[in-house]
């Protein structure tokens, strides 16, 4: 076995997962794309093959509505992987808070995909990575999980739950030299209406994917993207309390 990785990219229809798969392939790693059947997985497989012909790219169906099927999916991936397995998870769905207020089923759906699917899959793949005694897991978190905002607190709560679970999971996997990185991305344009100021633009998926790979190689546990949100998030979180206490 060499240092080459086979990256399992979860939620491959997500734009960030797509960017990450390309980034991983450009570094010479093999890629297995996991996503819903009918999503444009084959399109992405062709895309990566056309870009990097020396890289092995495969797609595997991932049914997030049937969490028990994940064990079989992991077995299938383990069988197909030729190198050290690493995982990038961008399984994510998002609804605007207004929609969640009207239909509570949407919150359930968000928890199913953003939390339970990732927890089930990572739990299923954990023994494989523990056996390897190396590998990386990168999970897409969000700054929305750091503090509640009126326009996306339902989505934020799914990410907050995931962040807490990952903290414990990190400690568990560290014993087996497997690094777990949580990438807390800022204002990803996945949900709701937004107003962007002149200089604030939606995040660049390619830059984020590059950072994810870089932080995983550096074995960083938690990172923010863009980096400066590590500073602005506490400010945004505590500014209202500070303002209120100063007003008193």
């Amino acid at each position: 076995m060499n240092n080459k990785r086979t990256w399992l990219v979860l939620g491959a229809n997500n734009i960030l997962a797509r960017a990450f798969a390309r980034q991983a392939a450009s570094a010479g790693n093999d890629v297995i794309l996991l996503g819903k059947a009918g999503d444009d997985l084959e399109l992405l497989v062709n895309d990566i093959c056309a870009r990097y012909p020396d890289v092995d790219v495969l797609s595997v169906e991932l049914d997030t509505s049937n969490l028990d099927s994940f064990v079989k999916t992991v077995e299938e991936c383990e069988e197909k992987a030729k190198n050290i397995i690493s995982v990038f998870s961008a399984l994510e769905t998002a609804y605007a808070q207004k929609e969640c207020g009207k239909d509570l089923g949407k919150i359930k759906n968000m928890f199913q995909i953003n939390y339970f699917s990732q927890v089930y899959f990572l739990s299923a793949i954990a023994p494989v990575l523990q056996k390897q005694l190396c590998g990386e897991i990168i999970v897409l978190g969000s700054t929305a999980g750091e503090y509640g905002m009126p326009d996306n607190y339902a989505f934020g709560s799914t990410k907050a739950a995931l962040h807490i679970w990952l903290q414990g999971f990190q400690a568990q996997m560290a014993q087996y030299h497997v690094n777990v990185t949580t990438v807390k991305a800022d204002d990803w344009d996945t949900v709701g209406e937004r107003k962007y100021s002149f200089y604030q633009k939606p995040l660049d998926p390619e830059a984020c994917a590059r950072s994810c790979l870089h932080y995983a190689q550096k074995k960083v546990k938690v990172c923010y993207f863009p980096w400066y949100t590590a500073l602005t998030v506490p400010l945004r979180r505590y500014a209202p309390y500070l303002y209120r206490s100063l007003k008193k």
Partner: peptide
């Protein structure tokens, strides 16, 4: 389907909307 309201300009920044 997501729409955002955004202020955009050309590369030369002589006009924006």
């Amino acid at each position: 389907m997501h729409w955002y309201e955004m202020k955009l300009s050309g590369k030369g920044r002589t006009s924006s909307s």
